[in-house]
């Protein structure tokens, strides 16, 4: 498959942005300056970016508590995101959502979601909107192997098939639901679940942008053509704990180090595109430098930004009350 150069460059930039954003949060969180808790997407970048490279602003996604990567992949700006995570009034949600609730409906980003299994039903609704409003859009639910056991997720698989919705269910399977392994908590297989609900099952390597891009692309093409929902099972690994501060005592020593060394989506992407002559290293270096500066600036801006006004406490509970 030939992928246009601008898509490759944009996708690399998104993955690099996610990586730098998350690595920086890892550092900043440890200083104690960031309120609440954060769940990092390092190691999983190619999944969100590979799926979203097939989408436009008309399409909708719903994310998870580990949502920064999906936000960036869908086009949400890092300045607004960083400010949100710092709880500032300049944040995308004006400091009222935080890390787990970053959303931008104008970009079709229906929100990160603090509830495991919260997204799939919403995505059935977004897909219904696309179908009935005939805007050609599709809706994508990202959820983890943990959420794959939620009743709301299983009900949504059923509903999507019953209503023949343009919905894609992307299972980001990093092997752990919090501190419990999927090998223990997930009965049967994702494949059997998809097929049990009458939808096609696809799987791909979540550390390989090309694998995700092409696999998800096929599922999305089908849905866009009115052929109904599909499941895309993405195998990947998270490089940090469930949340920041998780010592990951449930994982053997060296597991993450090996993932970082062997299955780094950015390294793999750079090697593959430069070796094939699709992109030159200088262009990628330029992106690396630009992203580094952008993330640096987002932290400086966030720290300098004002916190919400007292009056904001009571604002925006309702459109009108």
């Amino acid at each position: 498959m030939q992928i246009a150069r601008d898509i490759l460059l944009r996708s690399y930039r998104s993955m690099r942005t996610i990586r730098d954003f998350e690595e920086r949060l890892h550092v900043e969180f440890a200083t104690g300056e960031i309120p609440g808790f954060v769940h990092l997407y390092c190691g999983e970048e190619a999944s969100g970016v590979g799926v979203c490279a097939n989408l436009t602003d008309t399409d909708t996604i719903a994310s998870t508590h580990r949502g920064h990567g999906h936000c960036i992949a869908k086009g949400v700006g890092v300045d607004g995101m960083m400010a949100e995570i710092y709880g500032r009034s300049t944040g995308v949600c004006r400091g009222k959502g935080g890390s787990m609730h970053i959303a931008d409906l104008s970009l079709g980003m229906l929100g990160a979601n603090g509830i495991v299994g919260g997204g799939p039903p919403l995505i059935c609704g977004a897909a219904l909107s696309h179908k009935l409003l005939k805007d050609g859009g599709v809706a994508v639910a990202f959820y983890g192997d943990g959420a794959s056991n939620e009743g709301s997720t299983l009900e949504s698989l059923n509903l999507a098939t019953v209503w023949q919705l343009p919905a894609i269910f992307v299972v980001e399977d990093n092997g752990y639901g919090e501190a419990t392994g999927a090998s223990y908590a997930v009965a049967g297989t994702q494949k059997a679940r998809a097929e049990g609900f009458g939808m096609p099952y696809y799987e791909c390597d979540g550390t390989d942008f090309f694998s995700v891009y092409e696999t998800a692309g096929e599922a999305i093409r089908r849905a866009r053509a009115g052929e109904g929902p599909a499941m895309v099972h993405v195998h990947l690994s998270r490089w940090y704990g469930h949340f920041e501060g998780d010592s990951m005592s449930y994982r053997i020593d060296g597991e993450v180090a090996r993932e970082r060394a062997e299955r780094d989506c950015l390294v793999n992407f750079r090697r593959r595109t430069t070796e094939a002559g699709l992109l030159d290293a200088a262009a990628l270096d330029e992106i690396d430098a630009a992203v580094k500066a952008e993330v640096e600036q987002s932290v400086i801006s966030a720290k300098a930004a004002p916190t919400p006004e007292d009056a904001d406490l009571l604002k925006d509970v309702y459109v009108a009350y």
């Binding site: 409906l105 919403l122 059935c124 609704g125 009743g151 949504s156």
Partner: peptide, 24 residues
Amino acid sequence: RVFDTPISEASYIGAAAGAAATGL
């Protein structure tokens, strides 16, 4: 415009919320 749902409240009430947030 008028359709039956499976007996599956979590999915269709959630779908109604998602549809409401996206234009219906």
